[in-house]
């Protein structure tokens, strides 16, 4: 908290009072009746004895009374009517918006709950609960969160076959069949005796 120098307020009660019963903030709170009863009693007793503090409080009170004399502005007679008109306009506008939305939703999904505010409320409650559960480190939500994270990492590192080749299931079947054919042909080639063996056999003959 900022502390003022004594020179800033030459009428500081602390300069003359050595009892230090209350700070200047507390003396200000005293005139607003914002102190507990025991503190008020202590200050009252002190003010009877200490002229410096009594003068300080008196000056504060006078400033406060002077400020209260600044007068008030009169409220115009049509103020209330203006507020009510604005409120009714807003309510009407909200109703129109809601009815438009409900018509759209009913056309898209007949029989669905048509109050967007209610949906929004449900979603916000769910989001709030989720946030609160995560904040309180609920084991179920921590498990669910970990599971989600691992699943995402797994999907990223080990994509499915269709994802790896970027082909559709149909195309994959086709390529798989072709691959089998290649393997068969490879087996046929492998079954032939190697040329080197043939030449050695001929040499033996």
């Amino acid at each position: 908290m900022r502390k003022y120098k004594n020179t800033e307020f030459p009428h500081s009660h602390n300069s003359a009072c050595e009892a230090q019963i209350a700070s200047r903030d507390e003396l200000s709170a005293y005139i607003d009746k914002e102190l507990p009863a025991w503190k008020r009693y202590l200050i009252q007793q002190h003010l009877k004895k200490c002229r410096a503090c009594a003068g300080y409080v008196q000056r504060l009170q006078k400033t406060d009374t002077f400020l209260r004399q600044s007068g008030e502005v009169e409220v115009s007679t049509d103020f209330l009517a203006g507020v009510l008109t604005r409120v009714s306009e807003t309510t009407q506008h909200q109703r129109q918006q809601a009815s438009l939305w409900s018509r759209v939703v009913q056309r898209l999904v007949p029989g669905l709950e048509t109050s967007p505010r209610r949906w929004f409320r449900h979603v916000s409650i769910l989001a709030y609960k989720l946030r609160q559960n995560i904040q309180t480190r609920s084991p179920i939500y921590i498990f669910a969160l970990t599971f989600c994270v691992f699943t995402m990492v797994g999907v990223t590192l080990y994509p499915s076959r269709s994802d790896r080749f970027g082909q559709s299931a149909h195309a994959w079947k086709k390529s798989d069949a072709m691959h089998n054919e290649k393997l068969i042909s490879f087996e046929v080639i492998r079954r032939d005796p190697p040329k080197r063996l043939l030449t050695t056999a001929l040499q033996q003959k």
Binding site: M1, R24, D25, L27, S28, E34
Partner: peptide
């Protein structure tokens, strides 16, 4: 409390 006092001063 401090704000009020400073403001009054």
């Amino acid at each position: 409390k401090a704000l009020i006092h400073r403001a009054r001063q």
